[in-house]
Design a protein around this nucleic acid. Sequence first.
DNA 1: CACTGGCACTCGTCTGTGGTGAGTGCCAAA
DNA 2: TTTGGCACTCACCACAGACGAGTGCCAGTG
Lengths: 338, 338
Amino acid sequence: MSLEERKLEVLRAIVEDYISTNEPVGSKVLAERHSLGVSPATIRNDMAALEEDGYIAQPHTSAGRIPTDKGYRLFVDRLSSVKPLSPAERKAIQSFLEGAFDLDDVLRRTVRLLAQLTRQVAVVQYPSLTVSSVRHLEVVQIAATRLLLVMITDTGRVEQRVVELGGHTTPDQISDLRTTLNASLRDRRLSDAPDIIAGLPDAVGPDLRAIMTGLSTVLLETLVERSEERIVLGGTANLDAVDFPHSIRPVLEALEEQVVLLRLFGEVRAPKTMRIRIGGENSEEALRSTSVVASGYGSGDTLLGGIGVLGPTRMDYAGTMSAVFAVARYVGELLAGS
Amino acid sequence: MSLEERKLEVLRAIVEDYISTNEPVGSKVLAERHSLGVSPATIRNDMAALEEDGYIAQPHTSAGRIPTDKGYRLFVDRLSSVKPLSPAERKAIQSFLEGAFDLDDVLRRTVRLLAQLTRQVAVVQYPSLTVSSVRHLEVVQIAATRLLLVMITDTGRVEQRVVELGGHTTPDQISDLRTTLNASLRDRRLSDAPDIIAGLPDAVGPDLRAIMTGLSTVLLETLVERSEERIVLGGTANLDAVDFPHSIRPVLEALEEQVVLLRLFGEVRAPKTMRIRIGGENSEEALRSTSVVASGYGSGDTLLGGIGVLGPTRMDYAGTMSAVFAVARYVGELLAGS
DNA sequence: CACTGGCACTCGTCTGTGGTGAGTGCCAAA
DNA sequence: TTTGGCACTCACCACAGACGAGTGCCAGTG
């Protein structure tokens, strides 16, 4: 084992020990607990070098070392081996998710499951509207001058909007509207929809034109507003105060701010892609002391949304990554199949 | 002012001071800050009596007094005057809620608003299915042997379930199903629905009977399962570790357990009814150090659901009560009008 | 040249000691 | 019934010293 190799080995040992004990780790315990084959003094030299390079740091002079963000980064990139889930765990995931009976339920179960598996905060994004296709559009009269427009997508999302009309409508007219809407939009990607929707008023007779204009305005609004996607959160109770010496409040606040969470998933571009942000790598100030492990989920190559976990930088990255990965895969399959 | 009256006055002063300072309050500051017209020594006598009766307690010998749950209870029942919201606050509530465009959005805005107003954790229950009426039922074919059943209620809830069929169906059959379902169920209370639903299979021709049986089974299931209602939560970041000396973890866990929250609303039986649980009055162990201020909301006399706030027992009850009350009223009106 | 044992040094943590002050309960007097 | 006086309790704080974990450095060894 070359010197360089051993230094990395020492770093791995430090990260692993620190993750499991939450205490700065010194050269002595390191030599005892890991079979590095060298004396504490040698390890101290390596540690000095690692500190020089910025991978570890000392909270104070007479304490052991703890990994820095940079140290975790190296650990994640080069040193951690993904540990596959046990068959029992796989089984549990599958049976836990299979009981669900609609999209809301699937996602609620998913966060819950992921939070439980990782003992962290879990986050799941609703399947993105922009990659979904329209499965059905429904127009329901709910008052004399009011319609409810319901859109069902192939990922199981149901979006609804109230449309205020200028005047009255007959059941026949509504039926016409429904037929036209479905004929034009069914099975179309929502990303292609805006152009089609804009042309809808011209596709109907003059008596319906005014109403259809109202409907298409609302539809376009919905696509824009809702592309600010929704998110489900779970396991906030797993945030442990000891991991956030200052306060967990800013973290909780950031979690309630959906915008922040959505940005976390912004960079995931394909299913089965992992993206990890460690501590200061997060642009959000409040999340500087947390790490985020995010993945995409989807069917085939289509990215439906993001899924991930948030916790202290001192986190079991290997375990978390494999849990996120596995759950993402199952959710992707499940939603593809509905 | 009789002796008995002054004792209550002292209790009020203690509660108010403790709420605003979060520190045990002693006889001296009490005499200084409140114009009770007597000396600290006299107040000490009253305090001894109040402690004897269990309304206040001493954290330790040489400290001031803090109210007990029993003390807060007396305060809430007899001593606190509801302070009406300022016109500005009313205005804010109204404009904040008016921008919403569907039920989900209304409820999300509501919790957010309530959390902000009270600086506590806010909870809103979805309008109960059992008091809602069916506005429309939609049947959509989503695969050869699979239907999606969508139910829209007059409170704006949209429930969806996938139905697996034994065999294939034609568009005409589906249209028949839709017509029959709507003819039988539209505008019917969901509490009356089970009987109607059970009779549905007999209302259609033999070719549809099998399918209709499947649909009605699923519908009944939905009514049962979903009467375990849904809940929206907000403002968890307002939980301050200072108020929960042991840990806020059990509180967060209880909040994630929807069942627990639902039980909190179980006793509210009419809109505009307030129900307050203080500390140990909560049956849930984890909530023994919290107080819950809950109210019903609804249109007219019909209770749609619960709305409320959860915080430390050391809470501004008067302000919280009026905020919950006001928001409940607006939400009730808003949902009645949709 | 890498490794090792020895050693002096640093500094956070723990423990014990007084001092201080807030707050009390009791009592005798008004 | 109220009040001032007073002794007493006890949490909190600051300080000092002992302790020990952990380090960096150095000289010696293969």
